[in-house]
Design a binder for these strands. Structure first.
Length: 258
DNA sequence: ATGACGGTGTGGCACCGA
């Protein structure tokens, strides 16, 4: 059983890469962020031919999230209940897997630009709303994974330059506290359950040879509930798609569950 | 300090991302 998350930075551009990646890595579910397209343009048919049922929550130009699954999907929720939002950033669904229901909450977390900006304030409100909702969601769905592009580097070791970037976006105390608050709900960072290569990141800037120099951040995460935690046997970043022509700036993260 | 790269839009650059 494998679940994965990948910010594709435009599904229109990246669909061939997504299909190729799924052919090579037939995960049970793939959560996508930054679709940058509306639902009428979502490639339901191409993914169906690849063996995946999809639920999507898109918008024009920005944001947009989807869950692709080899198992039947139900109980779809779009965005955070009770939190008014014009931006399409969350989709949740329950997978009917052979070993039981698996609740996936897929988020494209707010970037936040810089501390002190309106966008940063929006990020804080959004994170607070997510936390409030997830507390209920975990009670209703004990077997839950929160995945996606968190736009938070949780610790210094998740950044290529924690000193130079101290207190800048992705690195602030406030963002990291919100990440810890999510963990305090009973969630665990699946990546840190295992020994990992140093300087493992999931995003690299397109500019200034960021990937070639491994100047990256680990901001894409798979958090698992207490019920799932003992089942996780691996969690890795797959850097290979970042080497493709016309790559996304993010790489997929994959967790394996027994 | 700035911009660099890439995607989108109805564009001739501006915006957003991280």
């Amino acid at each position: 059983m494998q679940i994965a998350t990948w910010n594709v930075n435009s599904l229109s551009v990246r669909l061939p890469q997504v299909l190729a990646w799924l052919a090579a890595h037939p995960v049970d579910a793939l959560c996508l962020q930054e679709l940058k397209l509306t639902d009428d343009k979502f490639p339901f048919d191409a993914l169906k031919e690849a063996g995946y049922e999809s639920v999507a929550f898109g918008q024009k130009t920005y944001n947009g999230v989807a869950i692709l699954s080899r198992h039947p999907l139900s109980d779809v929720v779009r965005n955070i209940p009770g939190h008014d939002d014009e931006q399409a950033r969350v989709i949740a669904a329950t997978l009917a897997t052979p070993s039981g229901p698996l609740r996936l909450v897929n988020g494209y977390f707010v970037n936040g630009q810089a501390p002190g900006t309106d966008k940063f304030a929006y990020k804080m409100l959004w994170l607070t709303a997510l936390h409030r909702w997830l507390r209920e969601e975990l009670q209703a769905h004990p077997r839950l994974a929160l995945v996606g592009d968190f736009n938070v580097a949780p610790e210094d070791r998740d950044s290529f330059d924690p000193v130079g970037l101290k207190d800048t976006i992705h690195h602030t105390v406030e963002e990291r506290q919100h990440f810890q608050d999510l963990l305090a709900l009973g969630l665990t960072d699946a990546f840190r359950l295992f020994e990992q290569p140093e300087k493992t990141y999931s995003w690299w800037d397109y500019r200034m040879l960021g990937f070639q120099k491994n100047r990256g951040l680990r901001i894409d995460h798979i958090l698992v509930s207490e019920a799932l935690r003992p089942l996780v046997t691996a969690c890795v970043v797959d850097r290979a798609p970042r080497k493709n022509p016309q790559p996304s700036d993010h790489a997929p993260v994959v967790a394996t569950l027994a």
